[in-house]
Amino acid sequence: MLELLPPLNDKNLPWLDVIHPIVVHFVIAMALITVVFDVLGVVTRRRNLFEVSFWNLVVATVAIFVAIIFGQIEAGLAMPYGASRDILNYHSTIGWSLAGVLGLLTGWRYVVRQKDPTALPSGFLVIDGVLATLVFCQVYLGDKLVWVYGLHTVPVVEAIRSGAVS
Rank of each mutant, 00 (worst) to 15 (best):
Q114N: 12
Q114Y: 05
Q114V: 06
Q114T: 10
Q114P: 03
K115F: 13
K115C: 07
K115P: 01
K115Y: 13
K115E: 15
K115L: 05
D116P: 08
D116R: 05
P117W: 13
P117C: 06
P117G: 04
T118N: 04
T118Q: 07
T118V: 14
T118E: 07
T118K: 10
A119M: 10
A119L: 05
A119W: 14
A119R: 10
A119K: 12
P121Q: 09
P121K: 05
P121V: 08
S122V: 15
S122Y: 10
G123E: 09
G123L: 13
F124E: 13
F124C: 10
F124P: 04
L125Y: 06
V126R: 06
V126D: 04
V126F: 12
V126H: 08
I127W: 01
I127C: 03
I127Q: 08
D128Y: 11
D128L: 10
D128C: 09
G129W: 02
G129N: 05
G129H: 03
V130Y: 00
V130A: 12
V130I: 15
V130K: 00
L131C: 13
A132Q: 03
A132M: 08
T133F: 14
T133A: 15
T133H: 07
T133N: 04
T133E: 00
T133W: 11
L134M: 15
L134S: 13
L134N: 11
L134V: 08
V135A: 11
V135Y: 01
F136Y: 07
F136E: 12
F136R: 02
C137Q: 07
C137L: 15
C137P: 09
C137F: 00
C137G: 09
Q138L: 14
Q138I: 02
V139C: 11
V139T: 02
V139Q: 01
Y140N: 05
Y140T: 14
Y140I: 10
L141T: 15
L141M: 15
L141P: 10
L141I: 03
L141Y: 13
G142F: 03
G142S: 07
G142K: 02
G142R: 08
G142D: 01
G142I: 06
D143Y: 04
D143G: 14
D143C: 00
D143E: 07
D143I: 01
K144F: 01
K144H: 13
K144R: 12
K144I: 11
K144T: 15
L145T: 09
L145K: 02
V146H: 09
W147L: 14
W147G: 00
W147P: 00
W147V: 11
W147H: 11
V148Q: 12
V148H: 05
Y149N: 09
Y149W: 08
G150K: 02
G150E: 03
G150A: 01
G150W: 03
G150N: 01
L151M: 03
H152V: 00
T153L: 02
T153F: 13
V154H: 04
V154W: 10
V154Y: 09
V154N: 00
P155Y: 07
P155L: 04
P155N: 00
V156K: 01
V156L: 06
